[in-house]
Simulated scan of single mutants.
Amino acid sequence: MSTFVVFDLEFTSWSGSLEQDWSEPGQLREIVQIGALRISTGNSADDHSVVEEYEALVRPVVNPRLSPFFTGLTGIDQETVDREGVAPAEALSDFLAFCRGQSVLSYGNDMVVLGENVGWARARGEEIKNGFLSAGFLNIRPWLNTIAPITASANSGRLWEALGLPKPVAGREHSALFDCYSIAAAIRHLCAGGAALPEGCL
């Protein structure tokens, strides 16, 4: 069975950080949540069923205290991260293992943020047990926005809504796993309509 991965990240943010590209002193895009789905290509273009989920909470190191802005945006609170979060090196190693040998798709350049976090962990002397070279990362936002221009202003968690689709699962936008289901619903819908995923996805 042929599969690919869709993933999404939530990372530390503050009011205005997106507009300022995280340029204020001490502001880093430290991953707090990773969500991913392994999706089957199936025997027909409209299959694309979810065969496996991956989700992890991560404890940020440089800014261990979450901003009120981040908590309001994502619904992820400090107590939950302190209780359930794992060390960055552990989460990154596990996630890259999940991606091994797969095409790995994101709606935006989340692979850049992933790379930043791998670099910071290694600079701290932490071991990342798996690398990028065994997976093919691709930003599918340009493809998706070109085929369905109505999605151009939509974030990953609102793709289903922009396309007039049923809500894919319970949850809310800016939750990494929910956003993955939203991306997957958009892919399934567009492929069912005859679109082919970009070359190199599978």
Rank of each mutant, 00 (worst) to 15 (best):
A121I: 11
D21K: 12
A123P: 10
D94L: 03
F11A: 03
P142Y: 06
D8M: 11
R65W: 15
V81T: 00
A162F: 08
F132P: 04
G108I: 06
V61I: 12
G157L: 06
A162I: 04
D110Q: 04
H174N: 12
D46Y: 06
I31M: 02
L138R: 11
A170K: 14
L28Y: 02
S15K: 14
S15L: 14
R141D: 12
V104S: 07
H48T: 08
A89R: 00
E79A: 15
L57K: 07
M111E: 11
S106C: 13
I140G: 12
S15P: 13
W14F: 04
Y107S: 07
L190S: 07
I140E: 06
E19A: 14
E52P: 13
F4P: 04
F11H: 01
R124K: 10
N145A: 14
N117C: 06
S182A: 09
S103F: 13
G200E: 02
V169M: 08
R158I: 04
R158W: 08
A56S: 13
E199D: 15
P149H: 02
G131I: 11
R172Y: 06
G35E: 00
V5S: 00
Q20L: 13
I187S: 05
V32F: 04
A192S: 15
V32D: 03
N145D: 14
A152H: 02
A192C: 08
N130Q: 14
A196G: 14
E116W: 15
I34G: 05
D94F: 09
S153V: 12
A154F: 01
E30V: 07
